[in-house]
């Protein structure tokens, strides 16, 4: 659906931000896009939506190149950026002026979400708090029903009950026809929603696997002494959490924070295990 091929990017007179990136985003999934600060997550999202142009390579949505900024492509993709400015219009006017760009926009869904987020259509957006503005944009993004929905740090600025509400809303909106990409540092907020992890480091994709494969092949938890030789990564040597090859052990939930740290420090070891078993199953 959304394809990134041989993508390179750097801002004028700075080091490369993205180097030969290849990614495939498929419908029916919620992707988690992780990386340390300044590793190009937001830049990648901006390129996908045609807000920035790649130096080389391309990003296409159902064969339509993002660089072209054509109506055909843009009507099927929506980005909820981390930072944004919204006009000083009422929520209702904002909806009226923006929604015609999205053929699948659902007015009903938008106002249901606005109500769920405890906002009123008559409120003027510029007078809302940051978190409330974000909710307007999240509600709008979901209601566009675009094939691809990109969200950059969506839970930043949301209060505690709203984070739970956000998860509920996301759980109910994803279906087989849509693809959601969420970039975040708030792993704890979203770990139950994400089913595929992409990690960027040093301007490259260092990890790209479905969590189903990760939990099938890796084991997360506190290892016993006899496990020590096979430990792939551990947080601290004494009784800390570790990543091991799963072998015959019970399936454990993927600890995303541990996985992230593990991939950054031992990318080769972890990828080798996932890749090898990948070939065996013929996937």
């Amino acid at each position: 659906m959304l394809t990134v091929r041989h993508l390179n990017f750097n801002y004028p007179s700075s080091r490369p931000v993205l180097k030969s990136i290849n990614l495939d985003f498929r419908p029916g999934n919620i992707y988690g896009l992780f990386g340390k600060n300044g590793e190009g997550k937001s830049t990648l999202m901006k390129i996908m939506t045609g807000l920035l142009f790649p130096k080389t390579g391309d990003c296409t949505l159902d064969q339509v190149s993002a660089k072209k900024r054509s109506v055909l492509g843009l009507q099927h993709i929506f980005l909820v950026p981390e930072d944004f400015e919204l006009p000083s219009l009422s929520i209702a006017t904002f909806e009226k002026t923006q929604s015609p760009f999205y053929p699948e926009f659902s007015k009903e869904q938008f106002y249901t979400l606005i109500e769920e987020f405890k906002l009123y259509p008559t409120e003027v957006i510029s007078k809302l708090s940051f978190g409330q503005k974000k909710k307007v944009l999240i509600a709008f993004g979901i209601a566009t029903n675009t094939k691809v929905l990109l969200m950059d740090e969506p839970t930043n600025g949301l209060d505690i009950p709203s984070k739970s509400q956000f998860r509920k809303v996301m759980a109910s909106t994803v279906d087989e026809t849509k693809c959601v990409v969420i970039s975040t540092h708030q792993v704890r907020d979203l770990h139950s929603l994400i089913n595929h992890v992409v990690i960027l480091d040093n301007a490259r994709v260092v990890f790209d696997y479905a969590l189903g494969i990760v939990s099938e092949r890796l084991w997360f938890g506190k290892p016993s002494n006899s496990d020590e030789p096979s430990i792939l990564y551990s947080e601290s040597s004494f009784g800390g959490k570790a990543i091991l090859p799963r072998m015959g052990n019970n399936e454990t939930e993927v600890d995303l924070e541990l996985l992230f740290n593990g991939v950054l420090s031992e990318p080769h070891k972890i990828n080798t295990i996932l890749k090898n078993t990948h070939d065996e199953t013929g996937v």
Binding site: N29, K168, A171, S172, D175, S192, N195
Partner: peptide, 11 residues
Amino acid sequence: AMMVEVNPNTA
């Protein structure tokens, strides 16, 4: 999925 706030695939 909504009730427990998880990805529908997990449900």
